[in-house]
Amino acid sequence: MLKFLKNLFLLLPLSLAAQAQAVQFIATNTYEVAKGETVADEQWVYAVDARVDGLVKDDLFLLSGNHMALGGEFERNVWGIGNGIDLTGSAKHNVRLMGKTIQVGGNVGGNVMVLGDTVKITPDAAIGGSMKLLGNNVILEGTTKGNVSITASRVVTVSGTIDGDLDIIAPEIILQRNTRIGGNLTYTAKKELVPAEGIVAGKLDRAIPHSPPAFSKARITSHAMWFFAALLVGIPFITLFPMTTAMATQTVRNSPWKCLWVGALCTLALPTFGIMSISSIIGVPLGALILGGWGFMV
């Protein structure tokens, strides 16, 4: 079994290399796809400034240190990380954006996931799927066909049309009178909401967060699943790097407290440095690398 896994993971880079032949990796100061131009292959792009007004037929991964303007037509998924992102074009599939200031004002046929300091879904936005929005301040306008989940550390303002359910977690929630929620509204906030008549078509529920018991079925099942996932990740690593694993085990036995402090420092400090880097203009690539490495280790 171990021999089979070793051969499998040795062949994995070859298969990835074969797939990478149709992928373009681009690093430039300014990335631009003008109106009328077409990008056929999947692209991974790092640029200081990025502007797309043309047609992109495959997946697009954009990492921009400054501003990113997405006004073109995207036939596949869009991934974007930048200081400021404006999506005014149309995407047929899913859109995932992360940055300091993010504004979505185009048409998206799939789902939308946004993580930023200030997140705004403009009145012109039309979302065919569901949305997950995370930020300090979130403004939701436009039209959403699916469900919407919002988590904010400050204020959430809603004045759009949501055909599905709306779930909000925020200290302060503002529902404008032109808000229309076709499903249920579930919220967690300091103050109780009293929506005007006609805003919520379904049920209104104020959720009070609580932790499950220490030995509940849900908690035990969750820990068991995470243990099994860690086991699946650990088996290939031990198979490919037996000496490294043995040395790491010996180091933990000889210096347990030192290993504990180093592990705790990496676990707590890396995400902090990553978020601080992304908050700056020139530190977005470094922050993305730090957070990616931290997520891989965790």
Rank of each mutant, 00 (worst) to 15 (best):
N254F: 11
E192P: 00
F241C: 05
V233K: 13
A264I: 15
A229Y: 04
P212S: 05
E197F: 01
S255Y: 13
A229H: 04
P209E: 05
L193S: 03
A201V: 05
V194Y: 00
L270A: 13
T267M: 15
P256I: 01
K217A: 06
A248L: 11
W261T: 15
P212L: 12
M247D: 12
C266Y: 09
T251P: 02
V252H: 10
L232T: 01
E197C: 00
T249V: 14
P213Y: 11
R253L: 15
F237R: 09
V233C: 06
W257V: 13
P195T: 04
L204V: 09
A207F: 12
L260V: 06
L260P: 05
M247P: 01
S216R: 04
T245Q: 11
F241N: 08
F228E: 04
P195Q: 02
G234S: 14
K203N: 12
F215R: 10
I199C: 09
N254W: 09
P242T: 12
A201M: 03
S255D: 11
L193R: 10
P213G: 10
A207R: 15
L268A: 05
P256Y: 01
P242I: 11
K258S: 12
T221M: 10
H223Y: 10
F241R: 06
A269W: 08
T244M: 15
V233L: 10
P213D: 11
P256T: 02
I208T: 14
D205C: 07
L240M: 10
A196W: 00
C259G: 03
V200H: 02
P195F: 03
L193G: 02
F237P: 01
V200N: 02
P256N: 04
R219S: 06
D205N: 09
V200R: 01
P256E: 01
H210V: 10
L260A: 09
W257L: 15
W257P: 09
F227A: 09
W226I: 00
A269V: 13
G234K: 15
T251N: 07
T267H: 06
M225G: 05
M243N: 13
P195N: 05
S222L: 02
A246Y: 06
T244F: 08
I220D: 08
K191V: 11
Q250P: 04
E197N: 03
V262T: 14
V194W: 00
A230K: 00
R219A: 12
S255V: 04
A224W: 00
S255L: 08
